[in-house]
């Protein structure tokens, strides 16, 4: 009889005690004893659900550990904007984690940085940080985009090249520097902020009127010299481009990324000077942050800071003018 009751108790412990003990510990006791909250996020390709959970709410001041694990293929995990969190690659079954404490409310995005599937770019999740008063500050409007809207600029409109018809002949930045030094260029042209709101083509037209005796080639070189990034792109910017842009636009901006064949519209070719001479910097900026209408270009405004976006715009110029 004693053995029978021992067996019965063992069975009850297994059927009821084991689940209660394990789940009670994990979901009840552990959060109570732990000073920080642990959120496990399972990453799978978007076709099978993407991030789970895809939305996480934390409070400002609350210590939270985000533990990412991959369910299927290798993913990459980064969180933005402005946090500078890049956990690198997460192989199936492996975990990467980061502990964060937000001082104030805001909306952040955790996203995949490795091309994991044709719908890779959809693989994003939201991290909502509520302020101490329980509110979440709204995502601030972008003044650059607002100005473009106010100006009536359609950032998706195609531009027609007027002067520069072929990028076959490579421009010379050295010659451009000499020409720019010899000519008495208007002061605005040396102002990076002014240049962002104008296309190289507009400046070419201006210079053609101002210096009709100078050859088109010399003027184009001078414009290219003006538009060249003043400094080498940072490693961070190059990494952002490689993780988020290169799959479609190609590692060197030639529009030949391995995912280019999957897009509905051919990705822009940044090495095409004819195309780039018709682009305004702020339009490139807006396109990156808002995405491209009617194309497969996703928005990156919820991933990058404005500074990171401008750095990327400069990176695009460096690709075309290198």
């Amino acid at each position: 009889m004693r053995r029978e009751w021992s067996a019965r108790i063992a069975v009850v412990l297994i059927l009821a005690g084991l689940p209660l003990a394990v789940l009670g510990y994990q979901y009840g006791l552990l959060p109570l004893l732990s000073s920080e909250r642990i959120v496990t996020v399972a990453a799978s390709i978007p076709e099978t659900g993407g991030f789970s959970p895809a939305s996480i709410q934390v409070r400002a001041g609350e210590a939270v550990t985000l533990r990412f694990t991959s369910v299927d293929v290798t993913h990459g995990i980064a969180i933005g904007p402005g946090l500078g969190v890049d956990l690198g690659q997460v192989d199936p079954g492996k975990t990467r984690e980061i502990s964060l404490t937000f001082e104030q409310g805001g909306i952040y995005t955790f996203y995949c940085t490795v091309w994991c599937s044709p719908n890779h770019w959809r693989m994003r999740g939201i991290l909502e940080v509520t302020d101490v008063d329980g509110t979440i500050p709204p995502f601030p409007p972008d003044p650059v985009i607002e100005l473009l809207v106010a100006e009536g600029i359609n950032i998706d409109a195609a531009s027609t090249p007027v002067l520069l018809q072929s990028s076959a002949s490579l421009l010379s930045l050295t010659n451009g520097a000499t020409v720019a030094a010899e000519l008495n260029l208007p002061a605005d042209l040396h102002n990076a902020v002014w240049r962002r709101t104008h296309t190289p083509q507009q400046v070419m037209l201006l210079l053609t009127m101002l210096y009709p005796a100078v050859s088109q080639r010399d003027l184009a070189d001078a414009v290219a010299y003006l538009w060249r990034p003043s400094e080498e792109p940072s490693e961070r910017t190059a990494q952002l481009y490689e993780q988020n842009c290169a799959a479609c636009h190609g590692q060197f901006g030639q529009g030949d990324g391995f995912a280019a064949a999957l897009t509905t519209v051919q990705p822009s070719v940044f090495t095409d000077l004819v195309y780039m001479f018709t682009r305004r910097g702020d339009v490139l900026y807006a396109k990156i942050r808002r995405g491209g209408m009617g194309t497969d270009m996703p928005n990156f405004g919820t991933l990058f800071t404005p500074e990171e976006t401008w750095a990327l715009v400069d990176f695009l110029w460096s690709l075309s003018l290198q």
């Binding site: 689940p19 399972a42 369910v71």
Partner: peptide, 16 residues
């Protein structure tokens, strides 16, 4: 029972 519990509440990564 442990196999069922891990299936329902554990990681969806089969190898783990």
């Amino acid at each position: 029972v442990l196999a069922m519990l891990t299936g329902w509440f554990g990681t969806p990564v089969g190898s783990r």
